[in-house]
Every structure is written in structure tokens, then in C-alpha cells.
């Protein structure tokens, strides 16, 4: 376990060793506020809640999370440091989990830095802070799901750009799994059971439930299982492809 933490700490420090971390956080905060105030009509709605803020998170994550996750394994494989890491006395699973946790902690930090908007809404009115907390938890879980997908895509290739594009595409499919855009592709031939199953994979549906303040175990479990699935897939892919 402590090796997982060691790997996570090194990875996290790596983000801040280059301008990547600062650029990312800055852009995340700028876009999050721009969406909230301009597209979301934060003031015009006249309601003391953060719905306009959280509603855009799935779309923000769609492009920003792959930007974090693309380097997770692609860079290790390109530079060859994956060989150094995996010949230390650590398990593949510790490495996969450690690097994922670093990326997740970084996202959590970026998310936490949106606190001024929470202060603002509390200053302007009296929102239901329980709902806001639930939405933050939901947003963080969704970010974890995106990151796990990104980690898996990053393990597939040595090229970060390819990893980014793959992650965006797969995340997009998961985001819209419950919507006609994705489901129409299956309607013609797939049985209803399969279509329902695919529809239930939608990030948006699960996130919307949580962000309304409903912390249903099934929604939480959904994100946890998604992360587990894609992290296990990451480990399997790495095991096969790490030396290529």
C-alpha cells in the first residue's frame, strides 16, 4: 500500500514540476466560471443553487480530463521509464492505482479551487448546501470515471495525442450512452435488454441524479465499478503491451 502512495506522490509532484498543472487549473477555473455565468445564466435564473455550475461539468471534463490522463502511461512507455518502474519491487496493480490516484487527487484539487462560487452563492442567497456537497461528490466520482477511461486509453498507445483522442471518443460515448445519438446505433438490431443496459451506462443520467442531491447507492456504485473496470483493463493492457 505504501508503494501506491509513493508512486502517487511522485506522479502528483510531476504535474507541478512543469507548467501543465498550473495551465490546467487556470483553464479549468476559467471555463467553469464562463460556462456558469454566461451559458448557465447564474444570475438571471434568480435561484440560489449551483445547478448552472455543475450542469457543465460533464462537458468540461470531456476535454479536460483526457488532457490529464493522456500522459499517464503513454509517456512512461515512450520514455521507457515504465521498465524502470515495473522492475522495482512494486506490483503492476500498485503502479496503476498509484498513478490513477495522483490524477484523481489533482482533479480534486482543481475542483476544490472552485470554492469561490460556493461562497458567492451562499453570499447571495441561502442554497441547500447538502445538495451542493452531493453534487461535488458526484462531480468528483464522474471525474474518476473519466480518468479511469483515460488511463486505459493511455495504456493502449505510446502516443499522447492518440491517447487523448481515444479518451475523448470513449468518454463521449459513455456520457451520451442514454441518448439517441448512441442508442440509435443499436436500436435496429440489438435486443431491448442490451439497449437498456447500454442506456444505464450513461454518465449523464447517473451524474444528474447525484447533482440533484440524491445520493443513491446505485449511482455511487456505478461510478466506482466503472473506475474499477477501466483500471483493471489498464493493468491487463499494460501487462500485454508494456514492452512494445
Amino acid at each position: 500500500m505504501h508503494h501506491t502512495v509513493t508512486i502517487a506522490k511522485r506522479e502528483l509532484a510531476g504535474y507541478f514540476a512543469t507548467p501543465v498543472a498550473y495551465v490546467f487549473i487556470l483553464i479549468f477555473l476559467l471555463l467553469a466560471s464562463a460556462f456558469t455565468f454566461y451559458l448557465g445564466g447564474f444570475y438571471e435564473r434568480g435561484q440560489a443553487d449551483l445547478a448552472p455550475f455543475f450542469n457543465f461539468h460533464p462537458w468540461l471534463y470531456l476535454f479536460l480530463i483526457p488532457a490529464i490522463s493522456m500522459r499517464l502511461w503513454a509517456e512512461e512507455r515512450k520514455s521507457g521509464s515504465v521498465e524502470l518502474l515495473l522492475t522495482q519491487p512494486v506490483t503492476l496493480w500498485q503502479a496503476v492505482l498509484g498513478k490513477f490516484l495522483a490524477a484523481w487527487a489533482f482533479t480534486a484539487l482543481a475542483l476544490a479551487l472552485t470554492f469561490p462560487i460556493w461562497i458567492t452563492v451562499n453570499y447571495l442567497g441561502s442554497p441547500d448546501n447538502g445538495v451542493i456537497l452531493a453534487a461535488y461528490i458526484g462531480s468528483l466520482l464522474m471525474a474518476g470515471g473519466f480518468l479511469a477511461i483515460g488511463s486505459c486509453m493511455s495504456a493502449l498507445t505510446r502516443n499522447q495525442v492518440v491517447a487523448f483522442i481515444l479518451a475523448v471518443v470513449v468518454c463521449f460515448a459513455f456520457l451520451l450512452a442514454g441518448f439517441p445519438l448512441v442508442l440509435d446505433a443499436f436500436h435496429a438490431w440489438a435486443p431491448q435488454v442490451l439497449i437498456d443496459a447500454i442506456a444505464s451506462l450513461s454518465f449523464l443520467t447517473h451524474f444528474e441524479a447525484i447533482s440533484k442531491g440524491v445520493l443513491d447507492v446505485r449511482d455511487l456504485l456505478y461510478f466506482v465499478l466503472t473506475m474499477a473496470f477501466f483500471l483493471i483493463a489498464t493493468a491487463i493492457i499494460l501487462d500485454v503491451r508494456k514492452s512494445e
Binding site: 511522485r10 510531476g14 514540476a17 512543469t18 520514455s79 521507457g80 521509464s81 521498465e83 524502470l84 522492475t87
Partner: peptide, 9 residues
């Protein structure tokens, strides 16, 4: 390892 890889940053 071949090429002495490490973490450049």
C-alpha cells in the same frame, strides 16, 4: 534498463 530511462522532470 537499456537506455537508462528515468523521470526527466
Amino acid at each position: 534498463p537499456e537506455g537508462a530511462p528515468s523521470y526527466g522532470e
